[in-house]
Write a protein that binds this DNA or RNA. Structure first.
Length: 883
RNA sequence: GGGCGGUUAGCUCAGUUGGGAGAGCACCACGUCGACAACGUGGGGGUCGUUGGUUCGAGCCCAAUAUCGCCCACCA
């Protein structure tokens, strides 16, 4: 009946097979069942361009732990997977690809380019899904979504139109971040600021009336081509007389006014600022206040346009160089100084961003941010760890309108149409062929697409069928927890929250669990360019998915970065191996057909009750840990129970019964071994799904798959205090005896009669019941229990215990000097403990103010240690006398 | 400029209501005894960055400070 496990643990033997088994049986697919509670997680959709990296492995492992646990705990657990079209990233890759084939976007045209992009998506989009499966993710592939799916696109369009109709989306001429390489506008969040060492140039602009000049300072000299004014602070005495005068823009010879604006800081630079309204956000504001108009001097690719006169056609940094040279030549350049400032780069391609004025579409953020902040302050959204709430509130409190239009082709096209006859702007759910104002058919759709985050902002409900009122949406929304990296709080988390509040009327998730970064062993960020990335698939291939998962879950805490060491994976693989072998031991000692259903509490022996009681506590504590998202602590607790309690102690203690002649005792031991093992597998399953399922299916009476069994429950009737005390006493005694023997260099093969001397009835009962443990685990030949040590002689090793003393008569082996040395060491230890306890207890404040329980514990310790010290001293005395 | 985090054993890190400092790896010694050498047993190793405060009691709370790191920010 019992099929034995292979001798060695090899995850390759079963991981893929089990994934298929779960999948084929639809265990990942929850039903809409009103009698059960739903539990929902939306997987942060990886980009179709990507392949699995450690970051994915980490957050998907966490999601899988939560999902598997909740599924076992009786919930209809939905973990919905999917992928993101990742507009700008994917487009860049496709552009590169066609470029290598000698083609360009423009040559191909929109239709053909999109076909290429879809081909790319189909080719690479599936790759990461298969990689995720290797990790063991129990997500519901039948509900898989893609941001460009028809229904998700419909959701995007619907949201755009609703926001437009509420005046929350508008089109306007504003300063945006322009990437000359991607040739598109990007949002503020997509700009990375990087400190750089640069220069600041001081330039003098002559005054028109010939009365002198005014000096300005700039870090971007090329933008002077677009200068429309010079601004000074109205309070600045130095420039008071110049306000209202006209200056001549060098090299261009444009006449520009000198204006006063309090935005200018007198202390900075020269106190006079050139104003370039079309190429700087602050200047834009100043320009608007003073009606300066606009002067755009750059093309899409960042080169200087016809407004730049002689500099036309130069790339922007070439132009800078040339302009500085010319300024110098014309004696306009006063000084060049070193200057540090933060330069904005495109998050995708790292090109330096050019702020410039452009007509784009924006989401008006303030009305959306407000409820999102309120939701947080009302506790509707919680961050784990809490500190990340500050990032959330800080961003929302300082929010600016969100530029959502992109000059890209891969993505959701704006549902906006322009009439070229009358200029009407039409936003429509259906294609527009005729202007609804002038009835002209001279109508065209906007060629822009939406920021990729616009669609991912809707992920928690668009994936469930919104705007349709689907049963899924009704049942599974709002979701329970979002698991993601702290680096996309404002890209994604915030946008989901306000989108959800706006469209659904409630927050999309209750908890946000934030993961840190997985770094290499030297603490560096893993990156392609550094070549220090560790491929999760290679790790899985070598050590198995379970070991990788366990490594990612333990040894770090939420929101903190972690370093990845293959040594840790190896250690966790060893743990899996330990469990594997423990199971083999259990299986090879089972008799057939004894029935492993219920535990018969009446027949349990001391160590049985002890392990059951310990298991019971572990169930409670591990469940509490999971409840509080303390996944690493929960995993560690289960690990410790398995290795320290079950393997190192329980199995060892029970061996004599398995090999013994007492049939009832033997069968009880077998039953308890299986009983505890089954709960162990359940507790470990969310963390290590493969090995636990594989073992489970080899156990007797386990017809149902482990993945859908029930999570163990704490039961107060399974607490056995006496047994716990008894076994813990025995464990301590065994450790002491082992220690003494090791220190005396007495090999375990040299067995000795062990004589316990005690007057304490409770200890006597512990020892009486525990005789066989000493024989098996402490190299005892036989056990005697005496009331006093009369007639024992002195040729013994003495092991001092609490309320007892153990004697090992090993006459010919005893080296009295060593024995004295060992006892002296013991004495020192006890002296130290007593000193600490007495110190504490002689502090009146402590005795008076500490809780009675704590004080009594300390008193008890004092009695215990003094009692033990007495015996050590007595022993030392008598042994010295012999010498 | 603003905000946040780390600083605990040789290394990497846990330590969540303040009550005798833990794990893994590494190291030393012994061991192949009928699950496991991917192992067992025993051991060494820390004034928890520094200073001050609160408290009977601080790795944990408060205030400074040092140092490393991260995030945000339109000073030309």
């Amino acid at each position: 009946m019992l099929e034995n496990l292979p001798k060695t643990y090899d995850p390759k033997d079963f991981e893929d097979r089990l994934y298929k088994f779960w999948s084929d049986n639809n265990y990942f697919t929850p039903k809409v069942d009103k009698n059960k509670k739903p539990f929902t997680i939306m997987m942060p959709p990886p980009n179709v361009t990507g392949s699995l990296h450690m970051g994915h492995a980490l957050n998907n492992t966490i999601q899988d732990v939560l999902t598997r646990w909740k599924r076992m705990d009786g919930y209809e657990a939905l973990w919905l997977p999917g992928t993101d079209h990742a507009s700008i990233s994917t487009e860049a890759k496709v552009v590169d690809k066609i470029k290598s084939e000698g083609k360009s976007k423009e040559d191909m045209g929109r239709e053909a380019f999109l076909e290429e992009a879809w081909d790319w998506t189909h080719l690479y989009g599936g790759r990461i899904k298969n990689q995720l499966k290797k990790l063991g993710v129990s997500c519901d592939w039948s509900r898989e979504a893609f941001t460009l799916d028809e229904n998700l696109s419909k959701a995007v369009e619907e949201v755009f139109i609703r926001l437009y109709e509420k005046d929350l989306i508008y089109r306007g001429n504003r300063i945006i971040n322009w990437c000359p390489s991607c040739t598109t506008a990007i949002s503020d969040a997509e700009v990375e600021h990087e400190d750089s060492h640069g220069s600041i140039w001081q330039v003098r602009y002559p005054l028109k009336d010939g009365s002198g000049h005014i000096e300005i300072a700039t870090t971007r000299p090329e933008t002077m081509l677009g200068d429309l004014a010079i601004a000074v602070n109205p309070e600045d005495e130095r420039y008071k007389d110049l306000i209202g005068k006209t200056a001549i823009l060098p090299l261009v010879n444009r006449e520009i006014p000198i204006i006063a604006d309090s935005y200018v800081e007198m202390e900075f630079g020269t106190g006079a600022v050139k104003i370039t309204p079309s190429h700087d956000p602050n200047d834009f504001e100043v320009g608007a206040r003073h009606n300066l108009g606009q002067c755009i001097i750059m093309n899409e690719d960042g080169s200087i346009n016809e407004k730049g006169g002689a500099y036309k056609g130069l790339e922007r940094f070439e132009a800078r160089k040339k302009i500085v040279e010319d300024l110098k030549e014309g004696d306009y350049l006063v000084a060049v100084k070193d200057h540090d400032n933060a330069v904005g780069h495109c998050e995708r391609c790292k090109t330096i961003i050019e702020p410039l004025i452009s007509k784009q579409w924006f989401v008006k953020m303030e009305p959306l941010a407000k409820p999102a902040l309120e939701a947080y302050y009302k506790g509707e959204v919680n961050f784990i760890p809490e500190r990340f709430g500050k990032i959330y509130t800080h961003w929302l409190e300082n929010i600016k309108d969100w530029c959502i239009s992109r000059q890209l082709w891969w993505g959701h096209r704006l549902p906006v149409y322009y009439c070229d006859s009358c200029g009407e702007v039409i936003v429509s759910r259906t294609p527009v062929e005729k202007c609804n104002k002038c009835e002209s058919d001279n109508v065209r759709q906007d060629t822009d697409t939406l920021d990729t985050w616009f669609s991912s902002a809707l992920w928690p409900f668009s994936t469930l069928g919104w705007p349709e009122k689907t049963p899924d949406l009704d049942y599974f929304f709002p979701t329970d927890v979002l698991v993601t990296g702290y680096d996309i709080i404002f890209f994604w988390v915030i946008r989901m929250v306000f989108s959800s509040i706006e469209q659904m009327g409630e927050v999309p998730f209750k908890d946000v669990f934030l993961t840190g970064l997985v770094r290499d062993s030297q603490g560096r960020k893993m990156s392609k360019s550094l070549g220090n990335g560790i491929d999760p698939l290679e790790i899985i291939d070598e050590y198995g998915a379970d070991a990788l998962r366990f490594t990612l879950l333990t040894g770090n805490s939420p929101g903190n970065d972690m370093r990845f060491y293959t040594e840790r994976v190896e250690a966790n693989r060893n743990f899996a191996n330990k469990l594997w072998n423990a199971t083999r031991f259990v299986l090879m000692n089972l008799q057939e057909d004894i029935g492993f259903g219920q535990l018969d509490l009446e027949s349990l022996e001391e160590e049985d009750k002890w392990i059951v009681s310990k298991l019971n506590k572990t169930i409670k504590e591990a469940s509490d840990n999971l409840e509080k998202y303390e996944l690493g602590m929960g995993a560690q607790r289960v690990y410790d129970f398995i290795w320290d309690e079950y393997c190192d102690w329980y199995i060892e203690m029970v061996k004599s019964r398995l090999y013994g002649s007492d049939e009832n005792s033997r069968l009880t031991a077998q039953k308890v071994l299986v009983y505890v093992l089954k709960d162990i597998l359940k507790l470990l399953h969310p963390f290590m799904p493969f090995i636990t399922e594989e073992i489970w299916q080899h156990l007797p009476d386990s017809n149902q798959a482990l993945i859908v069994t029930s999570w163990p429950k704490y039961k107060s009737e399974l607490e056995f205090e006496y047994s716990e005390n008894s076994i813990e006493y025995i464990k301590t005694a065994i450790k002491h005896i082992r220690n003494a023997r090791a220190e005396m260099n007495i090999a375990p093969s040299k067995k000795a009669t062990t004589i316990f001397v005690t007057k304490d009835d409770v200890v006597k009962s512990y020892l009486e019941n525990g005789k066989r443990y000493f024989i098996n685990l402490a190299s005892a030949e036989s056990i005697q229990i005496h009331d006093n040590k009369d007639g024992l002689g002195e040729d013994n090793i003495s092991v001092v215990l609490h309320k007892a003393e153990a004697y090992l008569p090993l006459k010919e082996l005893i080296d009295f000097d060593k024995e004295i040395e060992r006892l002296e060491k013991e004495k020192e230890k006890l002296d130290g403990e007593i000193k600490r306890v007495v110190g504490k207890l002689s502090n009146q404040g402590f005795v008076a103010k500490a809780p009675e329980k704590v004080v009594e514990e300390e008193r008890e310790k004092q009695r215990k240690y003094e009692e033990m010290l007495d015996k050590v001293l007595e022993r030392l005395e008598s042994i010295k006398n012999i010498k």
